[in-house]
Design a protein around this nucleic acid. Structure first.
Lengths: 197, 197, 197, 197
DNA sequence: GTCTAACCGAGACGGTACGTCCTGTCTTAGT
DNA sequence: ACTAAGACAGGACGTACCGTCTCGGTTAGAC
């Protein structure tokens, strides 16, 4: 599918490897120091690249940070065949992602930027929604399978926000537990509420 | 109950008005610029105070920011006599708080600091839990009144996180609507699920 | 001659010991750190005194420094009976003073202040002239004794400046030696020139 | 004679004009405020340069001050053909330098630093000796011409210190006059003493 | 086989904020 | 009226980082 067009531009082509090195460096530093501690000079040094090479590719720190976050794998596609199985798998996958990638350290920083800079909000929203898509998909599959009432179909995103939201709330704000047992209660309440409604 | 002890400290006492002026300045800047844009020099200038006077009271930016956030009023005590009334009132009060105070701009920044600095986590947790207390209280009152099953009493905090969490999720991460109509659905799902369980 | 009047002023009398403690502290710090490194807070701390107590006695740093320098002993009265003996003794005494008291570290700092602040010049001049008086006195005695021609009497201060000046020049500016042998040459040139003239 | 080598250093070259602007600013402030009143921020502002640009070139205030003093012209080469002519010219030139450049305000400050910081002494000595070289040269020429006895040749520097020293002594310490008439007496004493010796 | 344009590393640039330090003044309670 | 203690406004310190710019040099397609 990919095809090699003759380059229209002249001059020395960009070093394609640099992109990866820069993003890896940025992500590592973002994970270690948070957004506020992310230093462009440190990114360049760690990537073995000049600072201008970073700025040539991303115009500022936020853009770089967002691109770096894009390197964090999304939740793996989950489809166990049942709503309860999917939700269990999603929580486990999210916990694993938070444990192995420091995504958890980066998301609130991104949210903070989002609240602060209107110009950044749209871009960040797109990134966030992509990451929450597996949750919505699981709800929609459950409706299609008849596990949830058809009336819930308009509210798939709301239900996803309700489920994912309680995890975020605890991880980022109240620090409460997000273990398997707690999760079962949440699922029971929400799914029960939906079926009853 | 309060009693006037002789001052044990010597030397010129701190200017008590300065505390308020500094916190007001910090809060204003926090609201306008966010945590990342909070400048100690700007705080001092706006408060009409020397920079050293700020640092004498709060050792760093995070401490100052947290103290400033302490000036934002908490959710007003809500007790309408019914769970649904309380929850409606809480959402309205929170929306008003976010609309009038830029608390919304500050919370994710605080969460970001919390994820980044272990030493900050405990202090921030305390502040956060105080702010979420009205939610827990409303749930506990509902259980006491018999509106929610007695079996839910162990999970009051989880339920509060579930309800508040979906609001936070939408405000900070997915940008979805948090209006009255949406809220009714959320309350219906969660309360329905609890009663059924 | 001194007489004890009843104190006319009311209130607590000044702690007379504090003067000495402050000046000693100032002199010690002046010697260790130079005028530029003299810190009023350090003086107060070292003297075991509050800062205000220092400022009550001396209005600013320069005044304090000058008063502290006043504690350095002047050249001892020298009168060996001959010009050559006096000059030898004066050089030895000055060298000892520079070796034991760090006066040498303080004089150029004072000279620098003198060049900078017109208001300080007169006070500093008075202090300096007092310190150079033994040189003038030795010249005047030599004239009285007939060791130097009577025509030199108008120039006693110039001659003193010539003799002391070469020592200052070497100590402060060119770093050349100021030993006994060098001094003999200087004395021989100057005294020879005066007798010949 | 000058030759153009390829630049060995990489990166953007330093702005050569900035050097001059910084030194001029430093010298102006040094003249107006003295060494103690020299402010790095004021230097940068006056030079129209960022503070870091100053620190990139000179690591501290003393280095900058010394470099700035290097901009003050040295005594012009003096060679009138006779010792008395040279000495008259040197005094006149030095007086002019002190009158037009505030070198006089800076030298004692430098001497004070020299006494305070061993590490600074060698550098300052070199600067000072360069400035006193014309005096030594005049003495050496006089010896070569036979105006002074050949036996004085070992003491050229001492004689220079004696002559320049009395001027320094009066300008910096005792405040006595350094006019033409006074100078004639000094020259007469010193030259007379040397010829007689 | 040049020419030219965009790239590259390196590092200086103006600007801004940091957190610390010091001066000289002021404000307490206590002697 | 003094004392110790220490807070105050103001302002400089030297460091660090941002995003831009300017070098000499490299690497490609266009001529």
């Amino acid at each position: 599918m990919t095809q090699s067009y003759p380059r229209l531009v002249r001059g020395r082509p960009r070093d394609e490897e640099a992109d990866g090195a820069i993003l890896d460096a940025a992500l590592a530093l973002l994970s270690e120091q948070g957004y506020g501690g992310l230093r462009m000079e440190a990114v360049a040094a760690r990537a073995g690249v000049a600072k201008a090479t970073v700025y040539r590719r991303w115009p500022d720190k936020l853009s770089l940070a967002m691109a770096a976050i894009g390197r964090i794998p999304e939740l793996p596609p989950v489809d166990t065949g049942s709503l309860l199985g999917d939700l269990r798998a999603l929580r486990t996958a999210l916990a694993a992602l938070f444990r192995t990638t420091r995504l958890a350290g980066v998301l609130p920083a991104l949210a903070a930027e989002r609240m602060r800079r209107t110009s950044a909000a749209a871009r960040i929203d797109a990134l966030m929604q992509a990451r929450y898509r597996p949750w919505v998909a699981a709800i929609e599959r459950a409706i299609a399978r008849g596990e949830l009432p058809r009336t819930a179909s308009a509210d798939a995103r709301l239900i996803a926000d309700l489920l994912a939201g309680v995890l975020m709330q605890r991880v980022f704000f109240t620090g409460g537990p997000v273990d398997e047992k707690t999760w079962k209660k949440v699922v029971s309440i929400v799914v029960g509420g939906l079926r009853r409604g």
